[in-house]
């Protein structure tokens, strides 16, 4: 038995190398994986705090209408009544904090086609156009008012 052990000493060394590697891995795991990992699911609970700590970028509808009452009324009367301001104008928390920080107006040709470019996969009730045939190079807001787009 003792002889066998001596003749297999190279394998013992191999096992020692593997054991050291496993211990080093477990050490690394202990050092880098947070203790509370998996508390709520397969993620780091601290990630929730990290998300909460991020600055808010959307102001919210109610803040916009405080100053932009006319546009809000126009929108409420039209087909875009349920589309919030920031869906087209982008996040505006900075603008609410400091009104002198003026946002850029949305680029009409790109923003309208996001929803209204013809696509058979879109629901039938949604108005859709093949822009190049319908507008012939003109901007959408040459004819349609973005806040209440239905004509006539």
């Amino acid at each position: 038995m003792k002889d066998t052990f001596r003749e297999a000493s190279h394998l013992v060394r191999l096992v020692v190398v593997l054991a050291v590697a496993i211990v080093a891995f477990l050490g690394l795991r202990g050092a880098v994986v947070p203790k509370d990992f998996g508390q709520y699911g397969h993620y780091r609970p601290g990630a929730l705090e990290d998300s909460r700590a991020k600055p808010i970028v959307f102001a919210g509808q109610q803040d916009c209408v405080v100053c932009h009452e006319d546009q809000a009324k126009a929108r409420d009367s039209g087909r875009h009544a349920r589309i919030t301001c920031e869906a087209c104008h982008g996040p505006q928390a900075k603008h609410v904090e400091d009104p002198s920080n003026k946002p850029k107006l949305p680029q009409v040709s790109a923003i309208c086609t996001n929803c209204h470019e013809k696509d058979v996969a879109k629901p039938k009730w949604l108005p859709q156009q093949v822009t190049k045939d319908h507008a012939n190079g003109m901007e959408c807001n040459s004819c349609h008012k973005p806040h209440a787009p239905k004509m006539g």
Partner: peptide, 14 residues
């Protein structure tokens, strides 16, 4: 070699 230079017939059998 991991520092082991054993090439005996017994070690090779193992």
């Amino acid at each position: 070699t991991l520092g082991s230079y054993n090439m005996s017939a017994a070690s090779r059998r193992i």
